[in-house]
Simulated scan of single mutants.
Amino acid sequence: MVSQAEPDGCTAPHAYLARAGHTLEGDGGCIADARHQALAFLDRARTEYDLPVSARARDLTRLVVSELVTNARKYAPGPVLMELRVTARAVEVVVWDSDPTVPAPQASGPDRIGQHGLEIVRAVTEGLFVEQEPVGKRITARIALSDASSDTARR
């Protein structure tokens, strides 16, 4: 189930080492641009703060960004805002859109095609939080930077 967020969805603002915000226009390239921005942000976190950003964290971040931005573009009119935040142990992907409807997992079934994005994001993240805003909603997904079961952490 999607958790309703405590005040800001995740971590206290002072705990963030870095933050970056992006406005994603509705053109066809905004999803690819969002993925590119997220990977560049993780690269900066790794080099500027010497954080252990694993290959798995990079892949999951790219997947989460793709799913959340795709859903925002598909179901909400207007712009999409993405914020990336990093702590010593996790990256948070925050996506805001103008639709106030809180997404809900769909019932599974053999005839169901598509609409698995929320399930995917929930399965690969440490936390998924949804906040209704005065206009729209904000979804925050938290992904661990290091993978204890993997020796592939990039330094």
Rank of each mutant, 00 (worst) to 15 (best):
R46T: 02
D33H: 09
R122G: 00
V86G: 00
Q37V: 03
R19V: 11
A55C: 04
K74E: 07
P100H: 12
V135P: 02
N71L: 04
I139N: 01
G9H: 15
F41N: 02
L63H: 12
G26N: 12
R62C: 02
L128V: 13
H116L: 14
R58Q: 12
A40C: 02
T152K: 13
A57F: 15
A88T: 14
R112V: 07
V121Y: 11
P52T: 06
A12S: 12
G78L: 00
F129R: 09
P100A: 09
T47G: 06
R44T: 09
R154K: 01
G136A: 11
G114D: 02
A40W: 00
H22D: 08
I113V: 09
D111C: 09
H36M: 06
V121S: 05
G26L: 14
R58V: 05
L63C: 14
T11M: 13
I113K: 10
T70Q: 00
S146V: 04
G109S: 14
S150V: 11
A55V: 08
A72I: 04
D27K: 04
V121L: 08
A32D: 13
A148Y: 07
P77H: 10
T101R: 12
R85P: 01
Q37I: 00
V135C: 07
T101P: 04
R56C: 04
E131N: 11
T11Y: 11
R19M: 15
W96I: 02
G127K: 08
A141W: 03
S54M: 02
M1R: 09
D147M: 15
V80I: 00
L81E: 07
L17I: 04
A45C: 11
E131H: 14
Y49I: 09
R46E: 09
E119M: 08
L128I: 13
I120T: 10
W96R: 12
R89Y: 06
A141M: 01
K74R: 09
Y49G: 11
S3R: 04
V65A: 05
V65G: 04
R46Q: 08
H116A: 06
Q4A: 04
R155W: 07
H36Q: 11
T11S: 05
A15G: 14
S98F: 00
P13V: 06
T101G: 08
K137S: 01
V65K: 02
Y75K: 00
T61Y: 05
K74D: 15
K137W: 00
R154T: 02
C10H: 06
L118N: 04
V91A: 15
S108L: 05
G9N: 12
A40M: 04
L145A: 00
L81Y: 11
R46P: 10
A55D: 14
L84H: 01
L63P: 11
A32K: 07
A20G: 14
A5W: 02
A90G: 09
A148D: 12
P13Q: 08
V94P: 04
E131K: 13
L145D: 01
V93Q: 03
P105F: 07
F41H: 10
P110R: 03
V124C: 02
V102Q: 13
D97T: 09
S66L: 01
D59V: 08
I139R: 00
L51A: 01
R138N: 06
G21S: 15
E48S: 13
L128S: 14
V94L: 15
G78P: 00
E126M: 09
A12E: 11
S150C: 07
V2N: 03
L81N: 15
P110F: 02
D50I: 12
